[in-house]
Design a protein around this nucleic acid. Structure first.
Lengths: 167, 167
DNA sequence: TCATTACATGTTATAACATAACACACTAAC
DNA sequence: GTTAGTGTGTTATGTTATAACATGTAATGA
């Protein structure tokens, strides 16, 4: 907020980033995590994660499946769903409920309760970690309830699309 | 918040209520709204709303459909989805994404951005209005984005179920 | 050694959820 | 009385997800 950047049309949260670095970091993080937890980062699991991190946007299970097929893996539905569930369980993938789609976590270290911001027009999706989202959980009204998982998705229109919109 | 009630085992948000009154109020509210907005509260639309408000829990589209069939209406899928979408649009029904299910809005006057609290064990669902949820939107980090719709669902375990749990 | 187990993947079939596209009826407005 | 808008009905199909069972492989330990 210190100074205005030139990219005023974009939502701050949708700003670009160094994707090469992001990819490398993510792979390193998942490798470390799997070693530490004594889990198997099998070729299939690695490939699913790579597919998601490469695209860096939500993909449907059947899209993942198709890419798996092209990469020489089996492409029957349970293959994708099982691995996706596994990666979700360990925090490396999130499901975007509003899109029935899956996205690599942008920061597995921090985002246990992430917020997704979804532009309904350009369909860009940004992940905001719980520290920054302002959606602080648990909240005072929800007592006597142990929150294990959250789905927080904000759908609307980003300023770029809004400016371009005619209606 | 003034004093403790005897139902200490239940999450506060899951406490019972006067369902007869709730039902009547809801019907009156939807009638008033439709008249005011010059919309048609047709027998089909009324029935769908009644089905949801009677159960007062999330129902799948096909469950609604079955009940419609029993009530003498057509029971092909588009019938249910169309009416549900219509009622959602006007704020009388919400979709619970995590359950692929639909629930009557517990307070159409206030809950534009409701939070749903879902016990994964007893599957009870409570709606918390945005004023009370502590999830205040928009938040400082999400700038340059116009929020039109939110999906906020907190899944976990209510204290009743947690106390009963063996694991 | 070889049974047992735990885990990962593969396969078939089907379930569950949702929508496209078109048909028809009714009402209101011109 | 034709037209436009709206609501419902119907058929067919598309999309998303899971159940159930089979196979392979590696570690464990009697």
């Amino acid at each position: 907020m210190k100074k205005k950047k030139k990219n005023e049309n974009s939502s701050k949260i949708f700003l670009g980033h160094d994707h090469g670095a992001c990819f490398g970091d993510a792979i390193t993080q998942i490798e470390d995590y799997f070693i530490q937890k004594k889990l198997q980062l099998t070729p299939l699991r690695r490939k699913v994660f790579e597919i998601l991190i490469e695209d860096h946007k939500p993909l449907g299970a059947y899209e993942v499946l198709e890419k798996l097929g092209k990469a020489g893996f089996s492409s029957s539905p349970p293959i994708a769903y099982r691995v996706l569930d596994f990666l979700i369980e360990h925090g490396f993938v999130h499901k975007v409920q509003g899109l029935n789609a899956f996205i690599a976590c942008s920061n597995p270290k921090h985002s246990h309760f992430p917020t997704f911001v979804i532009c309904r027009k350009c369909e860009k999706v940004a992940e905001v970690s719980e520290e920054k989202s302002g959606l602080n959980l648990p909240n005072p009204e929800i007592t006597n309830f142990k929150i294990e998982k959250t789905t927080i998705e904000l759908t609307g229109i980003c300023s770029t699309c809004e400016n371009a919109e005619i209606r």
